[in-house]
């Protein structure tokens, strides 16, 4: 089994095909989307491939060390930051092709007009644990 991170972005991913802000959808389209997302996670739990899923607030700050005895410097959020992660799902699957297949299904979540959003999701393999046999 191998773990993969499916990353969803607020900003920084290529523009999806069906690009309409969610508050502009019809209420039943919003419902359909939420149901799809819940069902998707439940299905992966059922198949034993689900590990974790979390959503992130768009707010955040950049922080760095500012020297001995000084409080850390905080800044941002920077409007010009190109990449802004919205959340993730971690899955544990047999092979890379299965991760791609699942990300493709997730990207088909319905959006405005009940049509798939075709959202771009980033699929990142976890680095594996150290080998037990060398």
């Amino acid at each position: 089994m191998a773990k993969y991170l499916l990353l969803k972005h607020y900003r920084g991913a290529p523009t999806p095909v069906n690009d309409v802000a969610m508050d502009q959808w019809r209420p039943d389209e919003v419902e359909a989307h939420i149901r799809f997302m819940n069902d998707f996670a439940a299905r992966l739990e059922g198949s034993g491939e689900f590990i974790d899923s979390q959503a992130l607030s768009p707010d955040g700050a950049w922080v760095r060390y500012d020297g001995e005895g000084r409080p850390p410097v905080t800044d941002g959020p920077f409007a010009e930051t190109k990449d802004l992660i919205a959340g993730w799902m971690v899955i544990d699957v047999d092979r890379y092709e299965r991760a791609i297949e699942l990300a493709g299904e997730l990207s088909a979540a319905p959006g405005a007009g009940g049509e798939p959003i075709h959202e771009w999701l980033e699929v990142r393999p976890f680095l594996t644990a150290s080998p037990t046999v060398t």
């Binding site: 502009q24 209420p27 607030s57």
Partner: peptide, 25 residues
């Protein structure tokens, strides 16, 4: 829509998104 963007959890985000969608419709 702003409230949805700043919501502290998913249930509230979904709720505020529904409210925005209802009014926009």
């Amino acid at each position: 829509a702003n409230a949805a963007r700043n919501a502290p959890n998913l249930a509230e985000r979904d709720h505020q998104t529904r409210q925005a969608a209802r009014l926009n419709q």
